[in-house]
């Protein structure tokens, strides 16, 4: 999943991906972008759900 998201961002398939990453042990919403590709390695799946914006 992480590699797929990284590839999508890299290739411009998507401009942003709203997902989750761990922040000090807790799943927090994160906006993954091409500008911060390295963050894609921190993408996680879990039960936390936030509605955003």
């Amino acid at each position: 999943m992480r590699q797929q998201v990284k590839a999508w961002l890299e290739q411009g398939t998507v401009n942003i991906l709203l997902g989750y990453k761990l922040g000090q042990g807790y799943p927090l919403p994160c906006c993954f972008t091409k500008e911060n590709l390295d963050e894609a390695a921190e993408l996680i799946a879990g039960r936390a759900r936030y509605f955003l914006i």
Partner: peptide, 8 residues
């Protein structure tokens, strides 16, 4: 777009 979430 620069979108971020900050915990507080």
């Amino acid at each position: 777009m620069d979108y971020k979430i900050i915990s507080s």
